[in-house]
Design a protein around this nucleic acid. Sequence first.
DNA 1: CTAACGTGTTCATTATAGTGAACAAACCCG
DNA 2: CGGGTTTGTTCACTATAATGAACACGTTAG
Lengths: 191, 191
Amino acid sequence: MKPVPPPKIGANIQKIRKEQGLTLDGLAERSGVSKAMLSQIESDKVNPTVLTIWKIARGLEIELDAILKGGWEPVRKFSVTRSSDAAVLDTSDGGPHIRVFSPISMAEDLEIYQVNFDPGTALVSGPHAPRAEEFLTVLDGAVRVEAGERSADLQTGDFINYHCDIDHVIENPHDAPASIQMIVRFHRKPF
Amino acid sequence: MKPVPPPKIGANIQKIRKEQGLTLDGLAERSGVSKAMLSQIESDKVNPTVLTIWKIARGLEIELDAILKGGWEPVRKFSVTRSSDAAVLDTSDGGPHIRVFSPISMAEDLEIYQVNFDPGTALVSGPHAPRAEEFLTVLDGAVRVEAGERSADLQTGDFINYHCDIDHVIENPHDAPASIQMIVRFHRKPF
DNA sequence: CTAACGTGTTCATTATAGTGAACAAACCCG
DNA sequence: CGGGTTTGTTCACTATAATGAACACGTTAG
């Protein structure tokens, strides 16, 4: 068995707190843990209970993991994808036309598509990753959505959210074309 | 702010211990935590310190994470929001018109909006929660997006992803109306 | 069948987590 | 510059974590 040191909770909390520009007082208010206790924790003078750490994580608006494993570097995104640069996927001749907005780096994290359906076409999918979800907005026309045993007919402006870790189908059974925007959310790995 | 329950340590530890075929006595020897304490922890009679949990994880030869996270019940979503039922927010007279697709239950998790901008209107926002991001698709017309020091002009079909935990503005400086779809993602996950 | 052993629970005590208040140092504003 | 405020640390006390020992119940072997 490999020796794993205990987590460096004190240093981690102090680092994250300062990164967020919080004082001990500020974090005490947000977390419900006393300022005195926070000071003792950050300087490794006490060994806090799990519930205390959970409260601190809640106050910092981070996962409990981040405290156990250490902080992360803040990087601010500002990334543009032009219409002409969006990747285009066609599932098959005569099938739906798919444009991918989200960058490759976000594959299996949060994926954003626009899908255009000619009359009578369908997007048939098997189960995605466990707990994955889809959020679908109808931009134009009307579609039918099936996930497992359930189904719904949606008009322009309608919205649906369903789990897609089961077989699911989006189809346009009508005589007019339809257009949707679809978000696929995967449950993210820890830091 | 959405409440995240504390980790169910007691049940998780007992589940893993039994899966490994260990008694309380056996785990006590391997972990260096008293049998009495293990019993109290497993029956949620005490709130253990992080070091105690670390010792138990070492005794079970697992990552500390496994104790915090444990298992979960699969529940599959299938939730429709009709166009007529989408909440409408108008920021001010003459300002942008906002329709909210995502349900209240997803507030500060993943929020999905459609925003219509009359010519010359703008959506001005202060910083959202730390690490929050926006994903914006231009459905119609053209808009300008600014986040911190950076800005971009977007046309129909363009897409942008930026961190919105800083001041940010979306405006339509043109003579024609514009329409966007905006996704706001907050970095909080339930256990 | 009975005594010994195994497993988990409870009790009384010791050790320490967690708090409110006081303190010390740094900072800010008139 | 001086007084007030802010920020982090320490102290004394209360609350509770963690322990060894005793207890309760179930199982096993002679």
